[in-house]
Design a protein around this nucleic acid. Structure first.
Ligand SMILES: [Mn+2]
Ligand SMILES: [Mn+2]
Ligand SMILES: [Zn+2]
Ligand SMILES: [Zn+2]
Lengths: 143, 143
DNA sequence: CATGTAATGAAAATGAATTTCAAAAGCAGA
DNA sequence: TCTGCTTTTGAAATTCATTTTCATTACATG
């Protein structure tokens, strides 16, 4: 599975005429080894702690490449930090965010998905994407 | 209706021990005279064009006060600018955003609202708020 | 008025993200 | 392996919205 992702990025790189670099390999390996929803800074620090010096700008640039390649997805939760999650082919989900401990739970709801398309269609919109985030307190954080 | 809002802010100000100032009056009048979803910069420029000098910092600070007072609501659409809309008591809506012309259409869907609460409850969350934005192209922008 | 405190605003600071640009590295072809 | 061209890198500078600072100004109350 990790190998497939690496191959996918390689294909993308070849198609785009991108060069293969030590930095991109390390950033990809590290990204693939993380849990969901990692911020750029977190990923940067994770790489740094493995004492392999890579510049922040390169991490920012490379995560954009992963997004373009379809491996990563940007998550903007309005806390001022862009996060990235792994893209799983054919899968879609939204997020339930605990404002206490910042835990993120993923969920899917077919009915909501359908209703959204209906709403867009009713207004004559061609829906491209949507963003649904539910904020609240998780069990642990409700004292 | 505008008078009610002004009275509401006045009550809030009194309760909080805030002073009444020329700047707050102008910012409130201007905000109440606008359409929905205005950015801070837009509001600042609108005030400036009425050749009444007010600092940007004051506009930022005052919109936060309006939010606290329950007159305004922050809208974060991830385009790098915070927008504010008017709060209408007891009313809730979500947004359909055209990525072509930036038009924003408001909608309400009781079923989606309920499903969201169910999802949160199912995960043991106490839902505090949610954010639902549908992005797409409006009729005019689909060439 | 006088006096204490809150509000203002210009300018500086912040912080995430992007850009710049000289140096380093990858890639073909010789 | 060497050469030359082009991409990539990364430290530092820049950007841009927003926040903070702090000296000055304005409000409110006696
Ligand atoms: Mn997710
Ligand atoms: Mn709205
Ligand atoms: Zn929690
Ligand atoms: Zn449009």
């Amino acid at each position: 599975m990790i190998q497939e992702k690496k191959k996918a990025f390689n294909n993308f790189a070849v198609a785009k005429g991108l060069r293969s670099t030590r930095q991109r390999d390390i950033i990809l390996d590290t990204f693939l080894s993380t849990n969901q929803h990692i911020s750029v800074e977190e990923l940067y620090l994770k790489i740094k702690s493995g004492n392999q010096g890579i510049g922040q700008a390169t991490v920012y640039r490379t995560l954009k490449l992963f997004t373009e390649a379809g491996l990563a997805r940007e998550i903007l939760l309005n806390d001022g930090q862009t996060r990235y999650e792994h893209v799983i082919a054919g899968e879609h989900h939204d997020h339930l965010v605990c404002t206490g401990c910042n835990a993120i739970i993923e969920f899917e709801d077919e009915t909501i998905e359908k209703l959204q398309k209906d709403i867009a269609a009713r207004q004559g919109f061609h829906m491209r994407s949507h963003k649904l985030e539910i904020y609240g307190l998780c069990i642990k954080c409700r004292h």
